[in-house]
Nucleic acid binder design. Sequence first.
DNA 1: AACCAATTGTAAACCTCTTAGCATTTGAGA
DNA 2: TCTCAAATGCTAAGAGGTTTACAATTGGTT
Lengths: 229, 229
Amino acid sequence: MVESGHFSRSTFAAAGFVTALPEDVRRRLLNHGLVRQFAKGELIQQRGDAGKEFWHIRSGNVQIGRYSFDGKLSIFAVLGPGESFGEQAFLGEFPRMVDAIAGNEVTLVRIGEKELQSAITSDPRVARILLKTMANMVQQAFDLVNAGRNLSTVERVARALLGLCEGEGQTVSISITQQELADLVGVSRVSLGKALGKLEQSGNIERNYGKIVVLDPLLSRRRHHSVTL
Amino acid sequence: MVESGHFSRSTFAAAGFVTALPEDVRRRLLNHGLVRQFAKGELIQQRGDAGKEFWHIRSGNVQIGRYSFDGKLSIFAVLGPGESFGEQAFLGEFPRMVDAIAGNEVTLVRIGEKELQSAITSDPRVARILLKTMANMVQQAFDLVNAGRNLSTVERVARALLGLCEGEGQTVSISITQQELADLVGVSRVSLGKALGKLEQSGNIERNYGKIVVLDPLLSRRRHHSVTL
DNA sequence: AACCAATTGTAAACCTCTTAGCATTTGAGA
DNA sequence: TCTCAAATGCTAAGAGGTTTACAATTGGTT
């Protein structure tokens, strides 16, 4: 049985940054950016990298997470088209703090350190938007910690699925393997399988090969969540 | 047996902000601030508050966390003198995303929205420092998620203890109850007790009534951790 | 000095997750 | 159409966490 509760709205929120920028600034950034493709599974950036550019996703999706010393992958977020990542590194001094892996065929726009820097100095709104984006990330990271400590696996799986299907109504089909979803939720594939079984039994999802169909009952829960989660 | 590994340097890093500010800016902010006292256990700010001021800790310590709907407390960080919290709310739009509770008798300096705003506009370095602070928080939050997923309880307890005794050498005595530490680590008191037992047996700590003494073997591990965690 | 509330130590039953292993299904490519 | 690697479904054993309960200890207060 799935308890009712609060739900996170979007996968993760490095997201908003580029989208939230004023039209002209966004144009300038994206037009000067180098476009690059990555194949499924390719490492886009690695934890510890010194690079300071950041990336805007044009198509495909990118997994943000960390490989732990023993090779296990822990995914914090899955970002989609329109979202961006890597802004933090720009702030200097830190190396990259997460790995980024192409979840499928991905097209990215590379935005260099200088471009972002000049955007910030030329328009005071940019710094503020960046700050807001970061604050949002902190909040979502807290949600993640909290979820890991207080919610059942089924509940966390439900949240993760809701985060993966952004905005659409009715029924959404998500292309993701159970292993990937397990890495995102932070449990083993076996546990994930059980949780999916329960969600399926209760009519919230359907399991398929390489994809999961999120049904209306689950989707409608999102509409009832408090925005100030 | 405790595995060797990486350690987080400080408890949590809303920390640096005020301290990292240029001398004159810091002076100005702190001098104009209202000084307030809170008794142990008092709620300083509550999740959902609309207030936009933030706080600088002059003495005592503050627990940053969330009460979940069922009344359980999950602590994300314990901040001490010189550290600050609540900067995110200033960024506007969000309500507070965490609860802050006085861990003991606490003296805080209140810094209003206007003061911070004017500090930002008057000195471009301030925005940059704030951004850096936020980036650091994101990183530490990721560490927390990662630790929760991949580390044993003993390891997480060891980390938490190291985070609580900042900077000193040799042997440090921490005033904290097992329940508080359990809330910080995210386990039950029983589990925490077991973990502490193991750490004691291996000569890393001593357990006392209301306090824990962190011994040299554990402290020395911090020196070996990679700074770029 | 006696008392008492807070804190700590421990045990047992229960539950969930993990690991390891294997059988089955699926879908893409030869 | 056949083949095969990838993905899924499932089971069983084991580890570790939680809850509940109770006893023992501690340190401050009367």
